[in-house]
């Protein structure tokens, strides 16, 4: 009789705990995540791309594996290209940034930004001679994708040190001067706002 009561108590407690867990889970699911990425959407833009850089990158990766002891390291080698276009966002030019005189114009442009960043898979060539599996340690397709992600992250981290900004400024200034000359301006003064943050690619 006592055992039955004990069992009932345990079952009741378990049921209560399970309900609590479910409720907790439901509440956590309902809560909006500020980092939610919204996809399948169209966005208007007004970005002027004035320079495209193409870089070569060798992706040399290693896979270390332990099965109690360290196995021989498998290697991955690929040759890849990265295409980066830079320019300015014309939507960020405010009327107060444009001062028009009788024959002169003075414009303060927003900072240079990355317009597109492309690490095209079509231009990634895996070298089969140096992509070597080892005993119990093979390079799988998931590993290949991870190596490419590591390389991609590596490139993105160095975006700010590739001289993109300077060249994009020069090209943008030259292009806008060419266009503004057609408006019969004699004196064209183009300046850039100083960047508030390092060069990054903003998707959202």
């Amino acid at each position: 009789m006592e055992a039955r009561v004990k069992m009932k108590r345990i079952a009741g407690t378990a049921l209560l705990a399970a309900t609590g867990l479910c409720l907790g889970f439901a509440v956590s699911c309902v809560k909006a995540d500020s980092k939610t990425v919204l996809l399948n959407r169209l966005k208007q833009a007004s970005k002027l791309a004035t320079v495209k850089f193409t870089y070569n990158k060798i992706v040399w990766g290693e896979k270390e594996k332990r099965l109690f002891i360290k196995l021989r390291t498998a290697s991955f080698l690929a040759y890849s290209k990265i295409e980066i276009t830079a320019g300015i966002d014309l939507a960020k030019v405010k009327p107060s940034h444009v001062i028009v005189g009788p024959r002169s114009v003075q414009i303060t442009l927003p900072p240079v930004e990355i317009i597109t960043y492309s690490y095209p898979f079509q231009k990634i060539e895996v070298d089969p001679n140096y992509t070597a599996n080892r005993f119990l340690n093979t390079i799988r397709v998931e590993d290949m994708e991870e190596f490419l992600r590591l390389a991609d992250a590596d490139i993105r981290r160095s975006l700010n040190h590739l001289g993109i900004e300077e060249r994009a400024r020069t090209n943008t200034r030259a292009l806008l001067t060419k266009i503004l000359k057609k408006f019969n301006f004699e004196t064209i003064d183009i300046d850039f706002e100083s960047p508030a943050k390092p060069l990054t690619l903003s998707v959202q």
Binding site: A45, L48, A49, V51, K52, T54, L162, R167
Partner: peptide, 18 residues
């Protein structure tokens, strides 16, 4: 990263799809 090419562009990007 080895620089392979620099190309001058005059492209106005006015729509983006994600």
């Amino acid at each position: 990263l080895q620089l392979e090419d620099i190309q001058d562009l005059e492209f106005l990007v006015t729509a983006e799809y994600f």
